Simulated assay, not measured.
Amino acid sequence: MTTKVEVSTSGRLHMGFFDLHGGLGRKFGSIGLSLSEPNLVLDAKRSKSLDVSAAKAVPESVVARVAKVARQILTQMNIDDAVDINISEAVPEHSGLGSGTQMALATGAAISHLYQLNLTSMQIATITGRGKRSGVGISAFDYGGLLVDGGRDVVSTHASPPPMLARYDFPEEWAILLIFDSSEHGVHGEQEKIAFNELPVFPESLAAHLCRHVLMQAMPALIERDLLSFGQSIQVLQQHVGDYFAPIQGGRYASRLVSAVLERMESMCVPCFGQSSWGPTGFAIFENQLEAERHLLQLKTDFTEHALSWKICSPRNHGAKFSKYVITA
């Protein structure tokens, strides 16, 4: 008899950093949201050798990344045996939806369950090098919902991933529209490291301004279910952080097509919209599903480029799901 573990998690929105200055000893600090879709689903069982396979729709690059993470964890934890992993669904890579962190945490959690390692998500993130700037993806894996993290300690040379400061259920009735551009990839990997090293010092006064918007506008607006006020706070983040990153990503938004869609949304008075992380994926939030569908119908009429695609989804107000099965060897 063999135990098989299935882990199901999903993508997240990274809505913006609110302290890129770091003068108080912590840098970045971010706000984000766990999504119901797109999903990452994988199952794993013990094996004598490492084997990673996937459904036809899952790219080979995802298979390779999951295999790399599995090797890291098995080596770090001194496990002589291995795992047999199958990936049935995957979050699009380099799209700004946090696919790398979810892959690392799902793979690590599966191995931890199989070998009774009792690893926390923070420990898995540290082993695999995730959460170096934002802790939103880690908290999304653990808890879901709307998440605010406290940035990374820039004084310590052995700092842990950013701690979660606040977590709220996101209104289930609010619908989220995702805008994809298949012709672009967000900044990632070595390019991302170089980008942060080359950017000028972020103004301290502007960091204070953004922190105030998160603490005194976004967070209370969410509790009061005031989408207009919440959206205004997110727009302030998007404008200032997007303009700061513009020399690296070619403008406030990484994709020319997504940028045009977001500009159109502004003219349509959509209350909350922006780019997730480095993009190219854009997002917009509406009061309900009907409003999202109505706006999407108009956007599809206005934008017919083949590279654009769309998805309406919901918030995910819970963390990753785990299922265990006993199968016949």
Results as ranks from 00 to 15, higher is better:
Ser53Ile: 09
Thr304Phe: 02
Thr157Val: 12
Lys48Val: 09
Gln76Gly: 06
Lys193Val: 08
Gly25Asn: 12
Gly151Cys: 14
Met268Ile: 14
Gly145Glu: 13
Ile285Thr: 02
Ala64Gln: 11
Ile248Asn: 07
Arg212Ile: 01
Trp278Gly: 07
Asn78Lys: 15
Leu97Lys: 12
Gln72Gly: 00
Ala175Gly: 08
Gly145Val: 11
Ala307Pro: 01
Pro280Asn: 01
Gly282Ile: 02
Val69Asp: 00
Phe18Pro: 11
Glu93Gly: 03
Gly131Thr: 14
Arg26Cys: 04
Phe170Ile: 04
Phe196Val: 04
Val91Ser: 15
Thr304Tyr: 03
Arg252Glu: 04
Ser99Met: 07
Tyr244Glu: 13
Leu33Tyr: 09
Pro59Cys: 11
Gly108Tyr: 06
Val91Lys: 06
Met1Cys: 00
Phe286His: 11
Val69Leu: 02
Leu40Thr: 05
Phe286Tyr: 13
Arg167Gln: 15
Glu224Gln: 15
Gly131Ser: 09
Val187His: 00
Arg316Phe: 02
Ala159Cys: 10
Thr9Val: 05
Ile124His: 04
His158Thr: 15
Val41His: 02
Ala82Met: 01
Gln235Pro: 03
Gln123Ser: 07
Gly23Pro: 02
Leu146Asp: 04
Leu40Met: 06
Thr128Ala: 14
Phe28Tyr: 14
Ser49Val: 09
Leu308Trp: 01
Val62Trp: 02
Val136Thr: 09
Asp169Phe: 00
Ser139Glu: 14
His209Ile: 04
Glu198Asn: 15
Gly251Lys: 00
Ala329Asp: 07
Gly22Ala: 07
Ile223Tyr: 12
Leu262Asp: 12
Thr101Pro: 14
Leu114Glu: 05
Ser267Lys: 13
Leu13Lys: 00
Pro38Ser: 12
Lys4Ser: 05
Ser267Thr: 12
Leu114Met: 10
Thr328His: 11
Lys193Asn: 14
Leu210Glu: 04
Ile73Arg: 14
Lys27Pro: 09
Ile111Arg: 14
Leu24Val: 00
Ala218Met: 15
Ser112Cys: 07
Ser112Phe: 10
Asp142Trp: 00
Leu290Thr: 10
Arg152His: 10
Ala70His: 01
Ser229Glu: 14
Val214Gly: 07
Ala54Leu: 03
Arg294Ala: 10
Ile176Leu: 13
Thr328Phe: 11
Leu50Cys: 09
Ser156Pro: 08
Ser259Trp: 01
Gly242Leu: 11
